[in-house]
Amino acid sequence: MSSRVEVHDLRKSFGTIVAVDGISFTVDSGEILGFLGPNGAGKSTTMRILTGYLPPDSGSVSICGIDILHRPVPAKARIGYLPEGAPLYPEMTPASFLGFVADIRGITGNGKAQRLARVAEIMHLKEVWHQPIETLSKGFKRRVGLAQAIVHDPDVLILDEPTDGLDPNQKREVRQLVRDMARDKAIIISTHILEEVHAVCTRAAIISRGRIVADGTPGELEAMSEYNHAVTIQVRADDAVSLSGAIARLPDVRKVDTLPLADRLVEITAFPAGGERIITGISRMLQEGSWDIVEVRHESGRLDEVFLSLTAGGAEEAQGGAR
């Protein structure tokens, strides 16, 4: 069995700019792969190649076993694609626009009416069905964009920054829609928002300067963080020095950071040596001692830290995680 999407060693340059520099991956049905990377990393260019919009300089893309370069039309028939910025024909209505997409995709007759009604229902478009797209709010426009991508219930769904420019409620709604569609599709979604990875993706590929620098489940990526299995303790400032000294003497503790907080509190973070779980030893020590503890946290790793360390220098705008 081959995967729904198989990408092998894609490369694409624009003049002297190397936008995609040897990207390979596969996506199976049921997976939601997140492309995570700073602006300019090459996410959109990769997606444009996958969808047959741009030819690569070299490399291959197979969609459900069909080579997009050699047989573009049948391959495109299997893909639903939301381009970056969700472009739409402003003078059309959702009804006429989605009808057009259905026609091109060969959905006709009864099936067409049924499918359009279903899409209108999924995307909550009924109330604006006959309104010119240019008069719709941003949230509705984005849903029309998503609707055109799923009119034909595609095997492969490729969404370029589907939540970009939406307000927090609309973002959550779009993520929910994507998750709901995941069961029987292979989905690729690009984002520069880290929280999105946890919210929707089963797997994430961190892209920097046209290369995949890490590929794994959100948990696996977090495990690459030095915060993985770290322990964070909030303690009264008077006890901070003695506590951090005591923790530093424990075996398996590699390093201790202290950070003064407001209200005469101090945050102490203990980092494990070699990925060991140090919470057990620390909590035993805390119970036996008499320090004035406010809070204890076991860290599972921080994606923003992994992201920053992997993409540093390759970013026009590396603070993507702050959004």
């Binding site: 444009r48 919009y53 039309v73 694609y81 381009p83 910025g85 472009p87 024909y89 091109i104 055109q148």
Partner: peptide
């Protein structure tokens, strides 16, 4: 940008 939409349809 609708050209990207049109030319990625079959």
């Amino acid at each position: 940008g609708t050209i990207e939409l049109l030319m990625t349809l079959p």
